[in-house]
Nucleic acid binder design. Structure first.
Lengths: 207, 207
DNA sequence: TAGATTGTTAATCGATTAACAATC
DNA sequence: TAGATTGTTAATCGATTAACAATC
């Protein structure tokens, strides 16, 4: 690595990581094995791994544990990332309760809401705090990543406040398009995914 | 349309639809307006719309309501799609409670769980039913789309049962890779998204 | 007519993959 | 040595975008 890794490759590395986790400590794994479980072409896998410092052995494959480490290093998963979740509704709670990202160094640094009845309640290992304290919390806890899980109408404002407070990357779960300067935004949207599935359903049957 | 629409375009159409919803009934909208709100290039917008039956007017732009209709037609959002949600944990509940997809013709056809304590409880407009009845429910209610929101260990089995029962498209929210023959699978994964953000954080600062 | 914007072409860019020499 | 698999090249494919004639 040490060079720029193409976006398409970056998007696949977490998938490889997940597939490799299922075989931790099992010695080696060929690009074809990995390709099969990840659902991609084996040449793709080798090409992707060529952007890393990973070393395969011809005729054998890649060392599973070493490869996992190299992918983590390439993705920058080398330290803890506390995350702030804006919104403690159903979705915010599901995200905070879901511990699956802890494995990769992410943790719930804070979960915030405007509703006084929610503030103070426990969710997983966290206690809901007031949205009023967003700026102070982000600064004090050195939070760089924010998740917007508010209702759509408040998403833009929440994103702006997060960025103003120092957050540089945002994952937007609110069903709306938001835009802020100087921060990367990724959108995760159930409706969008369903619509894409609907198109393919039609294409396969209708014609 | 009537022709194949490229994947990259299909993925953007729902975004356009969302942007256009915010301007319903406001007359016309230029490719540049739409591009700005959607966060893409205006040539991209025009190219994408050229795969549809949509008609723009030179010097003026596109009729907002007509364009919305054409995008819906192209995506096949012309009838109701009941969805089955496998798993009534935090995530399944958040998904069932979130009504945002109803606008596009999707509805919760069923939400299932194995836990006897959850079966019978209300979530939004639905009542949790037994996973045992999956096959009967899918067949009887003509469900084509399934959402896997089970714990990771049960995701593969749930997907297989869904497909066996007649589901042809699956949205997988479980943090694992699943694979089934004869069905389209799309994965939505918080960890993956966070890892991509982490990479970009590192790339922007570290260097 | 002047200004604006579409629709489309063609250039460019980036991603995928087959193929194969290198080598364990 | 024989079999397997990497690492990389080069061909191909698909997506993006600048540019501009057509035209409202």
């Amino acid at each position: 690595m040490r060079t720029h890794i193409p976006d398409a490759t970056v998007a696949r590395l977490p998938v490889y990581l997940r597939c490799l986790s299922m075989r931790a400590g099992t010695g080696t794994c060929s690009s074809q094995d990995l390709a099969r479980t990840a659902g991609v072409n084996s040449a793709q896998v080798r090409k992707d791994l060529s952007f890393l410092d990973a070393q395969g052995v011809r005729g054998v494959g890649y060392d599973v544990d070493e490869l996992r480490l190299e992918i983590r290093k390439a993705l920058g998963l080398t330290h803890e990332f506390p995350i702030v979740i804006a919104g403690a509704g159903d979705l915010g709670r599901a995200l905070a309760n879901y511990g699956g990202f802890r494995e990769w160094g992410f943790s719930v640094g804070a979960i915030l809401d405007v509703d006084a009845r929610k503030i103070g309640s426990r969710i997983g290992d966290s206690v809901v705090e007031s949205m009023d304290d967003l700026e102070a919390i982000v600064a004090e806890r050195n939070i760089e990543i924010g998740i917007v899980a508010t209702p759509a109408i408040h998403a833009q404002t929440a994103a702006e406040r997060l960025v103003g407070a120092g957050v540089r990357s945002i994952l937007n779960f609110a069903p709306t398009v938001i835009s802020v300067e100087a921060a990367e935004i990724r959108r995760v949207d159930l409706s969008t995914e369903l619509q894409i599935l609907a198109y393919h359903l039609q294409e396969r049957s209708g014609n």
